[in-house]
Design a protein around this nucleic acid. Structure first.
Lengths: 151, 151
DNA sequence: TAGCCTATGTATAACCT
DNA sequence: TAGGTTATACATAGGCT
């Protein structure tokens, strides 16, 4: 598009690549939005630049719900695949695929576990801080009380 | 595009909507692929039709890795947000956002746990079946051996 | 449902600011 | 780095099969 045909290969000039990325990214997000509105579809789009910056679009700006839907979909797929394996005993064929998927899900689970640990750690830290503040306050109160009595 | 300008609103005619969806979907996937190649970007795209069918594109056809990256990114975001909360104590402002994110992640965790339980159940079932087959075979061997001795 | 055709609207490459 | 301009290439609406 534009002046001259484009070869479908990495743009070597860094500046051109950055400019093209910026322009095409906005085009892509626009098109994603259009199809979601025109055709009543749910769309989730994630774009990581080569520098690792994230740009995202999601229908009704609810990425989580769509990702969850994707996971459910994948889950159902695995269930079907496994049922198939059970039925026709074609274990070796689906094995690699299933194994790969499982590993990914276990990785995700690990990440989620991290997150939970992290959050509970934060919570504990916060509680701890609150506790300290409470104790300090109580001590101060006591001190003031004793002074009050003393006076 | 094409003959006549398009209003950005849901196409009411069901057949037109389906046709447009099909055409625009392929266009969107193509553009996603192009930006990923030209600009060295990682792209993950999920499109659910109004009927609930999933179409997806991912750079190097590895959706899992990109989703994982997204999760890591979100994780870092939460970490930053939480750090911010810790620093300036602006708890109430970020609380709702954080809580929503957490709920989603807990839901995802639950799904992952289900999946693991499901898969280990399948494995046990399979092991159990193998055990039965093994016992049947041993019994048969024994029987044949006793017949062999008897003859 | 998918594929081809063609007029037309859009996106965008190269360039400039 | 972002925003504006313009010539082109591309995408696609509506029609037909």
């Amino acid at each position: 598009m534009g002046r001259g045909r484009v070869q479908l290969k990495r743009i070597e000039n860094k500046i051109n690549r950055q400019v093209t990325f910026s322009k095409r990214r906005s085009g892509l997000l626009k098109k994603a939005h259009e199809i979601s509105v025109l055709c009543d579809a749910q769309v989730a789009l994630m774009v990581f630049s080569s520098k690792g910056k994230l740009f995202e679009y999601a229908t009704e700006s609810c990425m989580e719900r769509i990702l969850e839907r994707y996971e459910r979909y994948s889950f159902t797929e695995i269930q079907c695949a496994t049922d198939e394996i059970q039925q026709n005993g074609n274990w070796t064929w689906e094995h690699a695929k299933l194994k790969a998927r499982m590993e990914t899900l276990q990785r995700n689970l690990r990440i989620n576990l991290w997150l939970n640990q992290f959050l509970s750690f934060r919570k504990r830290t916060k509680n701890c801080k609150n506790r300290i503040t409470y104790l300090q306050r109580r001590r101060r109160r006591k001190l003031m009380w004793s002074r009050h009595i003393g006076s």
